[in-house]
C-alpha cells in the first residue's frame, strides 16, 4: 500500500528536504502534495487523499497551529496524523500543538533520520 503525503512549509528548500527524507524513509510513497501555508494545505487536504501531513508552524497567511485546528475540527480530515516540523521550540508552543492533535513535534535543526523514524512509526512500520 502506497501512502500519500502533504508537506506544508513556506520554505521551498525545506519542502524539498522533507520530501527527500520521506522518500528515503523506507515507506511506500504514493503521491506527495505541497503547500506554502495552512490555507493552501487545507485545500490540498480536501482535494486529495492524504495519509500523513508534515507541517511547519511559522507560516504566512495561515500558521501551522490554525491549520491543525481546522483539520481537527473537520469530520473527514480529523483522522489524518500530523507531524509538526518547526523552528518554534518553546515548550508552550510544542505542548499546544500536541494538545490540539499533532502526533509528534520535531524541532529544527533536525536530522533526516528523526523524520524518517517518525514517519515509519506513525504509519505503522515500526512499534517504537
Amino acid at each position: 500500500m502506497a501512502f500519500n503525503f502533504l508537506i506544508v512549509d513556506d520554505s521551498p528548500i525545506m519542502r524539498k528536504v522533507i520530501i527527500k527524507t520521506v522518500r528515503m524513509s523506507g515507506v511506500d510513497v504514493g503521491e506527495i502534495f505541497e503547500a506554502n501555508n495552512g490555507a493552501e494545505g487545507l485545500i490540498e487536504a480536501r482535494d486529495n487523499w492524504i495519509d500523513l501531513i508534515l507541517t511547519d508552524i511559522n507560516m504566512p497567511i495561515m500558521d501551522g497551529i490554525t491549520f491543525i485546528e481546522h483539520l481537527k475540527s473537520d469530520d473527514v480530515l480529523s483522522s489524518i496524523p500530523i507531524i509538526v516540523i518547526s523552528t518554534e521550540g518553546r515548550d508552550d508552543v510544542v505542548q499546544r500543538a500536541l494538545d490540539i492533535g499533532a502526533a509528534d513535534y520535531i524541532t529544527k535543526p533536525f536530522r533526516p533520520e528523526e523524520i524518517g523514524a517518525d514517519v515509519l512509526k506513525i504509519l505503522g512500520y515500526t512499534d517504537a
Binding site: I13, T87, G89, K108
Partner: peptide, 17 residues
C-alpha cells in the same frame, strides 16, 4: 530561489533557536 530560500531558512532556524 534555492539560495534565497536557504537564506530565509537559515535566519529562521538561527533566530528561533
Amino acid at each position: 530561489e534555492h539560495i534565497e530560500s536557504m537564506a530565509c531558512e537559515t535566519a529562521n532556524i538561527i533566530g528561533g533557536n
